[in-house]
Design a protein around this nucleic acid. Structure first.
Lengths: 196, 196
DNA sequence: CTCTCTGGCATACGCATCGTATGTGAATTG
DNA sequence: CAATTCACATACGATGCGTATGCCAGAGAG
């Protein structure tokens, strides 16, 4: 029967994480005040420290949630594709587009690594990176592309995608820049597909 | 004759930037206290605010300095190579290795974008990115590689290199990981070299 | 049903740090 | 040599984090 206490607490955590997502996305982690943030959720800092330990803990919780959502979206995109190789390209296109969303870019890609360190050390294990690693591993196993270390390839491609997104986001004409970035990205990815 | 005032001021700025490089590299931008930092330079916050405006201004000055040094090092590596194409590969290998240096990784690659936003918008214009862009442009002009937008390619490769470095830096066995990363990197770069 | 106690959350405090406003003395200028 | 500028120090107010303490709803025992 879930227990009323536990149920209330889940709701509290949910409200805090939601408010934090908004605040962190809008102002950035450093500039987001815990007082404002908790007040917006109808609570106080007491609830925050009780549930998440400290400010970093809250950021971690927010990141875990966003990361899980991204991984699910990536998987969905990849599965819709006609061939595994196209699936990979589609996933990365989706990755770049997601990295344009302020919430994802600001929180997960900029503040996250700066505050919490290397993403692969996060408790969430970076589900999003795991998803792309898995896909590349499958391509290698099927013989669709020559052998390559899947994690290495996934990390490099993710890094390239992220920077492409930062570029597009800061650009004055996002449309033109996005297509240039995706062109270059395809060229790089094709380096994986061809035998050396 | 240079004026004693101006000369003293240059020295003050130098001392502050030097102290800031150490502090930012060791503790990260957010955790570095301006009081501690200026005291270590034998000054007070007064000097800092007078010369750099605010904490971000100091970070910007530090970044400009590091960025210029990196660009010079990259150019030197590239010019030593036997062919332009090898020059590009060598430059990126050097880039990854530089990105392993805590000062560069922490200040320029992690805190810089998080605090100041997209690097290409920095006043220093990101000399390091300009250098790699220039090199790729030359390769295209010489017909060494098929046409590609030089800035796009440079940005993606820089992004990939950065993430490779973060991975290596956080790894337990940096040696093995570095070689895996460089392998994967070479594969990606070769995507640029071959006609589609 | 009542009493007790656990624990989720609010309140209150101390501490650190940033940015500004003001003061001071050395270097410059006429 | 008097006046002024300006580089830097000092003093102050404000904000925000983390902790210690208090309070009250809900769970369990008899």
């Amino acid at each position: 029967m879930a227990g009323k206490r536990a149920q209330m607490m889940e709701e509290t955590r949910g409200k805090l994480v939601r408010a934090a997502r908004e605040a962190f996305a809008a102002k950035g982690y450093a500039a987001a005040s815990m007082d404002d943030l908790t007040a917006a959720a109808g609570l106080t800092r007491g609830a925050l420290y009780h549930n998440f330990g400290d400010k970093k803990g809250l950021l971690q919780a927010v990141i875990d949630q966003i990361d899980a959502e991204m991984a699910a979206r990536l998987r969905a995109v990849g599965e819709r594709a006609s061939t595994p190789w196209r699936g990979l390209l589609d996933e990365y296109r989706a990755y770049v587009e997601m990295a344009l969303e302020p919430e994802i870019q600001r929180i997960l890609l900029l503040d996250g690594p700066a505050v919490l360190g290397d993403p692969s050390r996060w408790p969430s294990q970076n589900a999003c990176l795991a998803e792309t690693t898995r896909r590349i591993r499958a391509l290698v196993a099927d013989g669709a592309i020559p052998p390559v270390d899947p994690e290495a390839a996934a990390r490099l491609l993710n890094g390239a995608s992220l920077h492409a997104a930062l570029w597009v986001a800061a650009s004055d004409e996002p449309g033109a820049v996005l297509s240039k970035a995706l062109d270059a990205f395809r060229r790089l990815a094709e380096g994986l597909a061809r035998p050396t």
